[in-house]
C-alpha cells in the first residue's frame, strides 16, 4: 500500500529504496530533520513544502508536540 500512496503523491523509490520525486529521480524527499527516507521508514506527509514524516518513535514524538 505504501507504494500506491507514494504514487498518489507523485513519488517513487530508487534502487536503494529511497523515496524520490517521480519527475526528478535525483531529487530525494526529506524529513523534518533534513534526512532522506526509505520506503520502510515512510510514515506520512504533511504540508510545509511536502515534509515527509519518518515512522520512528522519536520523529513522531517531535511531531506530536508541534
Amino acid at each position: 500500500m505504501k507504494r500506491e500512496i507514494l504514487d498518489v503523491l507523485d513519488k517513487t523509490v530508487n534502487e536503494d529504496n529511497v523515496i524520490i520525486e517521480k519527475g526528478n529521480p535525483n531529487q530525494k524527499v526529506l524529513t523534518f530533520d533534513g534526512e532522506e527516507l526509505t520506503l520502510e521508514e515512510f510514515g506520512g506527509i504533511q504540508k510545509g513544502s511536502e515534509v515527509f514524516i519518518k515512522n520512528d518513535l522519536i520523529s513522531l514524538m517531535r511531531l506530536s508536540k508541534k
Binding site: 510514515g43 506527509i45 515512522n55
Partner: peptide, 8 residues
C-alpha cells in the same frame, strides 16, 4: 493536514 500510514 497530514496523510499518514495506518500504524503511524
Amino acid at each position: 493536514n497530514k496523510l499518514l500510514m495506518g500504524e503511524t
